[in-house]
Amino acid sequence: MNLFVDALNWILDPANYTGPGGISVRLVEHLGFTVVALLMASAIAIPCGFVIGHTGRGRGLAVATSGGLRAIPTLGLLTLVALWIGIGLGAPYVALTVLAIPPILAGAYTGFEAIDRAVIDSARSVGMSEAQIVRTVEIPLGLPLLIAGLRSATLQVVATATLAAYVADFGLGRFLFAGLKTRDYGEMLGGSILVILLAFALEGIFTVVQRLVVPRGVASGRLPVDRARSARPSPGMEPAITEGNH
């Protein structure tokens, strides 16, 4: 318990927040690093996922690749890349982008796959081009699952970004490594608590975003059309859904 008191004291000590190596700077670094890694992973995974989801081709390859990427130990990859391109932020960016790709990719294509085929077929039948189908049907309806993928990627990246401090003087991970070296376990635990709090905060944001991106008119992002309801004539009855309510 003494350790927790130390950690809390460390977190609450205003002196630890200032200066070039202070908590404020580390927090901003950590968050910025997470965002950039996610953006890079998204830039690769989202277009690929959309293509796979829209065409239905390459799914097997995507599953196998994501499985392979997931199996790579991040610390090992980080060390390997660092040995190759040198000390600095390059290696952590590569390692964490690789970590973030599988969940985002899966979110992107499962979002498209979960859409009722009849909806897409009918969009095509009335004369939507493939690009219009992707833009106005598949992306809005698939968005909730994509956000879910981003959410899980974010959690993994924000937690694993502590490893950036392994090869660079960077982020909240700095407190873990520094604390370990100087046997200042209060600082070390305090650093981990900050990472956990940051993860909770991001999780909270995503919970809200995920709710907001469910299109009006769709009760849940997974099943756009509820067939069970369609056989009952109920003119002017209470709305069958909550999201689309006025």
Binding site: D116, A118, V119, D121, S122, A123, R124, S125, V126, G127, M128, S129, T136, V137, P140, L141, P215, R216, G217, V218, P224, V225, R227, S230
Partner: peptide, 22 residues
């Protein structure tokens, strides 16, 4: 095909309406 479909009306089983549009 796309131009052709836009001048032919199409009605299917289960309506095929876009669930996220009014």
């Amino acid at each position: 095909p796309v131009q052709l479909r836009r001048r032919i009306g199409y009605v299917m089983q289960n309506s095929g309406l876009l669930p996220h549009r009014t």
